[in-house]
């Protein structure tokens, strides 16, 4: 699914990712943990092609294609989805209109016929129910006046509608209360079908109680310093990140 080799990336003059390598197979859930400033969010931004993040060396293969050679929207249409840590508002653009345009673009890429507005509305309503968002949110501006939790649930709704191959969740748990966290986790778990892969970026182990990962990686100073199974997350919870940073140093 995804093969990252010796990836180096920087923002302006600051090196953030150093020789990062990671391989993800279909159906796997990988958790990326680490202290603040370790480069966790950078990974998602680099993979999705966000302007300002420059890859200096290394390669990324996504479903057999050179990911770094693709435009932002091509990556998205090919099934790479980034759930934002801080979803931005687009005033006046209805959520429904935005979602339909996104789904149309994805379906076109997959050579599927465009959904009629009627059919799409039906699917969107059902999906909003699954993430406990009132259907009224579909008519509101994208994230316009949404609370933090509503924005995150809106992200998960987008993910469900787009049915991506690889989902990157960038600290989706930050700022969520336990109920919202459960809604988000249920959404993700419902999408685990043995083929779709996930990268779950989080600072805390808490989310991983609900979304149980196959692999846990610890990122520090731009590289993976330790990998293990789900039990690694518990170890981190108990011991903090300090011992790993010491180990690297």
């Amino acid at each position: 699914m995804l093969d990252i080799r010796n990836l180096n990336a920087r923002v302006e003059e600051t090196e953030i990712l150093r020789n990062l390598s990671l391989s993800i197979k279909p159906g796997e859930v990988h958790a990326i943990m680490g202290p603040n400033g370790a480069g966790k969010s950078t990974l998602g931004n680099v993979l999705s092609g966000r302007p300002g993040y420059e890859v200096t060396s290394g390669s990324v293969e996504f479903n057999g294609k050179d990911l770094l050679d693709m435009e932002i929207e091509e990556r998205a249409r090919a099934g790479l989805f980034l759930a934002f840590q801080y979803p931005v508002e687009i005033p006046g653009v209805s959520n429904m209109e935005f979602l339909k345009a996104a789904v149309d673009a994805r379906r076109k890429h997959l050579d599927l016929p465009e959904l009629s507005s009627f059919d799409f509305m039906k699917i969107a309503r059902e999906t909003s129910k699954r993430v406990s968002l009132d259907a009224a949110f579909l008519k509101r501006g994208v994230n316009e006046g949404f609370s933090g939790g509503e924005k995150k649930r809106n992200e998960i709704m987008q993910m469900m509608l787009l049915e991506p191959n690889l989902c990157i969740l960038d600290e989706t748990d930050s700022g969520l209360d336990i109920d919202a966290l459960q809604v988000v986790a249920e959404g993700v778990n419902a999408m685990r079908d043995g083929k779709r892969s996930f990268i779950v970026v989080t600072h805390y182990q808490r989310l991983l109680d609900f979304i149980v990962p196959d692999h846990v990686h610890v990122l520090a100073a731009g590289r993976i310093v330790k990998s293990g199974g789900k039990e690694l997350a518990l170890e981190l919870e108990a011991k903090g990140y300090g011992w790993l940073e010491d180990e690297v140093a």
């Binding site: 929207e73 998205a76 994208v142």
Partner: peptide, 11 residues
């Protein structure tokens, strides 16, 4: 805003 739209597949 541009990045959000493009990340969702819009040109």
């Amino acid at each position: 805003q541009m990045f959000l739209c493009q990340q969702r597949g819009l040109d």
